[in-house]
Structures are given as C-alpha cells and as structure tokens.
Design a protein around this nucleic acid. Structure first.
Lengths: 118, 118
DNA sequence: GATTGACTTGGAGCAGACTCCAGATGTTAT
DNA sequence: ATAACATCTGGAGTCTGCTCCAAGTCAATC
C-alpha cells in the first residue's frame, strides 16, 4: 500500500508518516525498486499503535525508545516492559490531574448556573 | 506579595508569571510606586485557576479568552459559560482517548507478562 | 557609597511536533 | 510522448509555550 492510501485510511498526513519514519518513531518502511514506500499490514499496525499512544499524549521520545528496543529483538523485552510501566504511570497521573480539573470546571459551571437562576 | 514569593508558593517560575501576564492569561497585576508587581490574593487565585486548567492541557487561547471576558464584566457571563462548556467537552474527549490508550497499554503489558511466564 | 540581591523590560533562543515547499523522479492515462 | 498526478528528499517555516539573557532600576545592608 502506498503512502496516499495509508494517509487516508489512518488519517495521518503523508508528511507526518514520513516524519515519523525519519525520526524512527515507526520502523523504516520497505521501498519498491524505484524507492517508493510500500506499507505492509505490520507497518499499519505500528502506525495505529503510535497514533493511539500519541493521542493520549505519550512522548515521542519514549515511543522511539520502545520502537528501537523492539527492533533489537527478544533480549530487550524487560526494558520494553519498563517503558510500558512508566508510561502507564505517566498516563494515570495525567488522568488524575485532568479529573481534578474536570471537577473544578464543573464547580465553576454550577456556580455560573446558580447565578443565572437568581 | 512580590514575584519571588508568588513563584515559590505557587511553583511557577517568575518568567512564566511575567509571561502569563504579558499574554493576558492572567489579569494584569498592580504595581507599586517603582513599578514592581504586588500580587493580591485575587491574583493568586487566578494563578491557581490557570495553573490547574493548564495542567489538564486546556489551551492558553481559550483561557485568555475567558480572562478577557471576565474583565469585561457581567455582560459576558453567557460567553464565559460557553467556554467552560466547550472546554469541559474537550477535556472529556481527551480523557476518553486516554482511557482507550490505557486499556491498550494494559493489554500490551499483560501480553508481555504472559510471554515472560513461558 | 558601594555591594548585593530582587525586580524590570524587550527580545532572543529553544524544544516538541509537525507542516510546507521546491525541485527531482516515478507512474498512469490518453 | 506529454499531461497530470504521486512520490521522493532535504531543509526551511510554523506554532505553542515557555525559558534565558542582557542591561537597567530599585532596595537594603555594611
């Protein structure tokens, strides 16, 4: 599958796809004889994974490291797990902060709603 | 209260405090005769509010708009509420995305943990 | 009155994460 | 074979949100 189709199917711009590959946020994609990217389903899975993690705000740095380790093979499973554990915690912390904010926001809204009722 | 103390008490750098004021993310702070900022408790409340909202990732733009409207007075309550409603939705959407990612992350972790048990 | 430390400003610099562009090459349809 | 479109690359530009710096003013102390 060529980059245009991937871009459309995954809702990621072509530029971003190339950028992600350049910085090794996804493993490098095979090329055909004339140097054009041919994405495999595995590539698509990587993109989906990265997209999901990025949507939650995980840093590109941590994800790059994960991809790097993945490509090194079985010897790195422990380190990869550690990254996952760490990132899970980051995520949980951030969600807690957001929950706190959400409560404050709701209080504020309730306050406004009461004022309006006067 | 001077900027140093505020910075320490609120854990926000002096540069950031000045920056927030410059871009009107907080209302402008009163100065003494020689031009030095004297923060009131109301200023501190604004800083706390902004800090909380920013920690959850609300955009500076939306918050600036809120502050601007606040300073215009009672005529803007509806518009301010709208901002709060909008931002609450943004926040909820983001939290949902994070929840999805968290589940995926947990699946992945479980997968690794099972592999290691072999 | 000279040093020390806090505060001021404007503007430059930076990191993260894209996004855009120009110029070259490849592919497809008529 | 020529137009029209897709893809490639390297590098520049953009946006957000700070962060740092220099050069100057202010305040308290020795």
């Amino acid at each position: 599958m060529k980059i245009k189709e991937v871009s459309e199917r995954m809702s990621v711009s072509q530029d971003t796809l190339r950028y992600y590959e350049k910085i090794h946020l996804i493993p490098s994609v095979k090329r055909n004889a004339s140097g054009i990217r041919e994405y495999t389903t595995e590539d698509l899975q990587w993109i989906a994974f990265i997209k999901c993690m990025r949507a939650a705000g995980l840093s590109i740095d941590a994800l790059c490291e994960y991809v790097r380790l993945y490509q090194e093979g079985d010897a790195t499973t422990k380190q990869r797990m550690q990254i996952l554990y760490d990132q899970r915690e980051v995520l949980q912390k951030r969600m807690e902060a957001m929950h706190t904010t959400l409560k404050k926001l709701n209080e504020k809204i309730r306050h406004y709603e009461q004022e309006t009722c006067l």
